[in-house]
Amino acid sequence: MQRVNMIMAESPGLITICLLGYLLSAECTVFLDHENANKILNRPKRYNSGKLEEFVQGNLERECMEEKCSFEEAREVFENTERTTEFWKQYVDGDQCESNPCLNGGSCKDDINSYECWCPFGFEGKNCELDVTCNIKNGRCEQFCKNSADNKVVCSCTEGYRLAENQKSCEPAVPFPCGRVSVSQTSKLTRAETVFPDVDYVNSTEAETILDNITQSTQSFNDFTRVVGGEDAKPGQFPWQVVLNGKVDAFCGGSIVNEKWIVTAAHCVETGVKITVVAGEHNIEETEHTEQKRNVIRIIPHHNYNAAINKYNHDIALLELDEPLVLNSYVTPICIADKEYTNIFLKFGSGYVSGWGRVFHKGRSALVLQYLRVPLVDRATCLRSTKFTIYNNMFCAGFHEGGRDSCQGDSGGPHVTEVEGTSFLTGIISWGEECAMKGKYGIYTKVSRYVNWIKEKTKLT
């Protein structure tokens, strides 16, 4: 034993070699072989497995989906700052455009905790909710729209109204504003409101030439003092309507412009014939205590009207009353817009006519005020429907199939267009061939041609 100890002390290297040989010859039971080890760690190889990531292109799944990435790591994937920024906006807080917040056709661009709407022409605001041009839906104005110097929408209202708090709607500024039905039992019968379409306001006024200088022999019209197929109006439903009495009662109609003036057809009036105007009328054979009678003290036909040349060209006249009318729910003026808007309103496509005229061709006159909704007829169809001249200051309205029309005794009465609950004068009943005849239409004086003249002559002093 002493000898062994001496050998170990003198030859430590020998001992180490012996131990190493023993270990190498022993069977290893701690580690699995290569094949079995792979069965336990069965993990798919990654895209760049075996390579240094710093030297390969980034992978979106590896960089940002398996674990949260930084902007720089995302930049490695896209290799483009702009594309990385677009991805980053949604990656950080989701897609803010998912709810489609942009209105009126706006395009949404996502941002971090926010979004941006790219608005089409005519709109602005956070969600493109603000109209900035009158060309689109009248700028959301209830009545009139004008573009300011910086191309912003400025709404306005006709006389007797003021802008509401929203700067879009119009509200009454006087007790009985024009064009409004205020009798409670008839307010439910107000005709369907007309909503502004998209309009090209630059070209809204037709490029028409008034044929002022045409000389033409007097034409022989049949029954051209021209509501057939209409309905009984309720008291106060058309408070701007008046009836004219002269040699015979209810020979023509008219509309209240203001307390002192009536507008009617020029062919209705004769110099030297006494005319009485009755406002607030409903049943011409009954006294309903809503009527107001006034005498006409002055007749002003349009300066281009000449019955000797043509009885229905420039067929418009103004009547001055001896005493002002007292405005109330049964006696209310009709609204008159400017030339541009009167023309736009007419193009809405349908209007209402009213009167006490004959209820059928050569038949009896109506006792109760009649009204009828009539569609506008395109000019080409209008011209083809008659052998008589249709001037540019006239328009056609009615039904091709016949059966409904204005008729004798309705002449001078109103053709009105309702705009968001307020009625505007767009025409004056003038003439036609018979009444409600198939293929024939009622012919009306186009008020847009005469609004400046009306307003100039009827100013209240």
Rank of each mutant, 00 (worst) to 15 (best):
I7V: 14
A9I: 09
A9V: 09
I15T: 05
I15Y: 06
T16V: 10
T16M: 14
C18A: 10
L19Q: 02
L19H: 03
Y22D: 02
Y22Q: 08
Y22N: 04
L24P: 03
S25I: 14
S25R: 06
E27I: 02
E27W: 04
T29V: 15
V30T: 15
N36A: 10
A37F: 03
I40F: 09
L41F: 09
L41P: 15
N42R: 06
K45A: 15
S49A: 06
L52Y: 08
Q57L: 05
E67W: 03
E72M: 15
R75C: 04
R75A: 15
V77A: 11
V77M: 09
E79K: 09
N80M: 05
R83I: 12
F87P: 15
K89T: 13
K89I: 06
Y91P: 08
G94Q: 10
G94D: 09
Q96N: 09
Q96T: 04
G106R: 01
C108S: 00
K109N: 08
D110R: 06
I112P: 04
N113H: 07
S114H: 07
Y115C: 02
E116G: 05
C117F: 00
C117L: 00
C117W: 00
W118R: 14
F121M: 11
G122W: 03
G125P: 01
N127S: 06
N127H: 13
N127Q: 10
C134E: 02
N135D: 15
N138Y: 04
C141P: 01
E142I: 04
E142Q: 12
K146W: 07
A149N: 11
D150Q: 09
S156E: 10
S156L: 06
C157V: 01
E159F: 06
L163E: 02
L163G: 01
C170H: 00
C170G: 01
E171W: 07
P172Y: 04
A173Q: 07
A173Y: 09
G179E: 01
V183W: 09
V183F: 11
S184G: 07
S187P: 12
S187A: 12
T190V: 12
E193T: 08
T194V: 13
F196R: 08
D198K: 09
D198G: 12
D200Q: 08
D200M: 06
Y201V: 13
V202Y: 13
N203M: 11
A207G: 13
A207L: 11
I210C: 08
T215V: 11
S217V: 11
S217K: 07
Q219S: 05
Q219G: 13
F221C: 06
D223M: 11
F224H: 10
R226A: 07
G230Q: 07
Q237P: 08
F238V: 06
V242S: 00
V242H: 00
V243F: 09
V243N: 04
L244K: 01
V248I: 12
V248D: 07
A250G: 13
F251H: 11
G253P: 07
G254Y: 00
S255C: 08
S255H: 02
I256P: 00
V257S: 00
N258R: 02
K260T: 02
W261D: 01
V263A: 04
T264R: 01
T264Y: 00
A265W: 02
A265R: 02
A266Q: 02
E270Y: 05
T271S: 10
G272N: 12
I275M: 07
V277L: 03
A279N: 01
A279T: 03
H282R: 08
H289P: 12
R294L: 01
V296R: 02
V296L: 02
H302G: 02
Y305E: 01
Y305P: 02
A307F: 09
K311P: 11
H314G: 04
D315S: 03
L319K: 00
E323C: 05
E323V: 14
P324D: 05
L325K: 00
V326Y: 12
N328T: 12
Y330I: 03
T332Q: 04
I336C: 02
A337T: 03
D338L: 03
E340D: 15
L346T: 08
F348S: 14
S350Y: 07
S350W: 15
S350F: 12
G357S: 13
R358F: 08
F360P: 12
H361L: 13
K362H: 11
A366Y: 11
A366R: 08
A366D: 13
R373F: 04
R373Q: 14
V374N: 02
V377T: 05
D378P: 14
T381H: 14
C382W: 02
K387I: 04
K387N: 13
T389R: 15
M394I: 10
F399E: 14
F399C: 07
G402W: 14
G402T: 08
R404H: 15
R404A: 09
R404T: 14
D405W: 08
S406R: 12
G412D: 02
G413M: 11
H415D: 01
V416Q: 06
T417W: 01
V419L: 06
V419F: 12
V419E: 02
G421V: 03
F424N: 00
I429F: 14
S430I: 12
W431M: 12
G432H: 06
G432Q: 08
E434V: 10
E434S: 13
Y441G: 02
G442H: 15
T445R: 02
K446A: 08
V451N: 03
N452K: 13
W453G: 00
W453N: 01
E456D: 12
K457C: 09
L460P: 12
T461G: 06
